[in-house]
């Protein structure tokens, strides 16, 4: 009997010490983690909207969206982080759009786990610069093996077709959602 009591006491004490120390660590760490995340988002926003001087998160909608302003505090567009499925896993990107959602300012890949050296080329400038000033209507299209000949078209990366197509699909999916919100007047 004494053994059982000793076991229970030891386990309880260990449990309590563990719980208390962990909650203290969490209280110390969580604000810092939030700050880190905010800093990262801020860096990404300015990378896709280089002309922006300030930004503000858009409330009251389901999506994460930031409206950006110039030095006179006039709205010049949006920075929109979005994610979807790629070839090997999740691709998370951020796209800068003008106010009417018709032209892309820039796309940056935030997170990806595509095949190194092949699919991961979607993070390279040679692929991403195609999206600068790209038109979004009726939607973004891709072409394989030859340079694009439409203002809303990009060329996929050789040997990384699926990753490239995934990026286009993710962009179309996200931008369409934004366009619907704009039609309903919510943004």
């Amino acid at each position: 009997m004494k053994n059982v009591i000793q076991m229970l006491i030891v386990l309880t004490v260990i449990g309590i010490i563990s719980g208390v120390s962990l909650s203290e660590i969490a209280i110390w760490a969580n604000p810092k983690i939030a700050v880190n995340r905010a800093k990262e988002t801020e860096k990404a926003i300015y990378r896709v909207q280089p002309k922006a001087k300030s930004f503000k998160k858009v409330d009251k909608i389901d999506l994460e969206l930031y409206q950006v302003f110039d030095e006179n505090n006039l709205p010049i567009g949006y920075a929109f982080p979005y994610e979807g499925n790629g070839f090997q896993g999740k691709i998370r990107l951020i796209v800068g759009l003008n106010d009417s959602l018709s032209v892309i300012s820039r796309v940056e890949i935030l997170e990806q786990v595509e095949t190194p050296g092949l699919g991961s080329k979607i993070t390279e400038e040679s692929f991403l610069k195609q999206f600068i000033d790209l038109l979004t209507s009726p939607q973004i299209e891709w072409v394989k093996g030859s340079p694009p000949n439409k203002p809303n078209e990009i060329q996929t990366i050789t040997a990384a077709t699926i990753s490239s197509k995934s990026v286009v699909a993710i962009l179309n999916d996200g931008i369409n959602k934004l366009k619907k919100l704009k039609e309903k007047g919510e943004i």
Binding site: M7, I14, S18, I25, W28, A29
Partner: peptide, 24 residues
């Protein structure tokens, strides 16, 4: 009888600490 369980809790606690410190 409870040594494995105790060791596990102690180890998991320190791992959680390392995880949070690294994230922060």
């Amino acid at each position: 009888q409870v040594r494995i369980a105790s060791y596990i809790v102690i180890i998991a606690t320190f791992v959680t600490i390392v995880d949070y410190v690294m994230k922060a």
